[in-house]
């Protein structure tokens, strides 16, 4: 259950951003989580209320976008969608691909109330 450590790290970043903009409360937090990040979005959702208690983000809604897995083939140079344990080229079947997307673990956007 490393989602809690991730959540604490997230809250630290949110805290810094909120302080930088003199926010009074954080309303919405947008994340991008790819399947290959190793993080379960549902677990992150369920620990967030506990981790955010008594922080500036305690009323905040966590909005997580699931990202697709995409690969580019090193042999045929085609791009295709792939699944988490089958990162092979969807066009020619070669396994030598590079990951284009799907391992994101990103804080995308923070929406907050400010005094001014």
């Amino acid at each position: 259950m490393h989602e809690l450590s991730i959540c604490q790290s997230l809250l630290k970043q949110i805290g810094n951003i909120a302080a930088e903009h003199n926010a009074t409360a954080v309303e919405n937090v947008y994340l991008q989580v790819g399947p290959l990040s190793g993080i379960e979005p549902e677990l992150l959702q369920s620990v967030f209320p506990f981790a955010s208690a008594n922080t500036i983000a305690e009323q905040a809604k966590l909005i997580i976008s699931a990202m697709p897995i995409r690969v580019r083939c090193k042999t045929c140079f085609g791009e295709s969608e792939a699944s988490i344990n089958r990162l092979v080229c969807g066009l020619c079947g070669d396994w030598q691909t590079e990951l284009l997307a799907g391992d994101e673990l990103l804080l995308e956007r923070v929406e907050m109330r400010t005094d001014h």
Partner: peptide
């Protein structure tokens, strides 16, 4: 709704 929005795009594990 009038809230301030900041686009960030930092890795959640950037501190680590």
């Amino acid at each position: 709704s009038g809230a301030a929005a900041v686009d960030v795009l930092t890795n959640l594990l950037s501190e680590n």
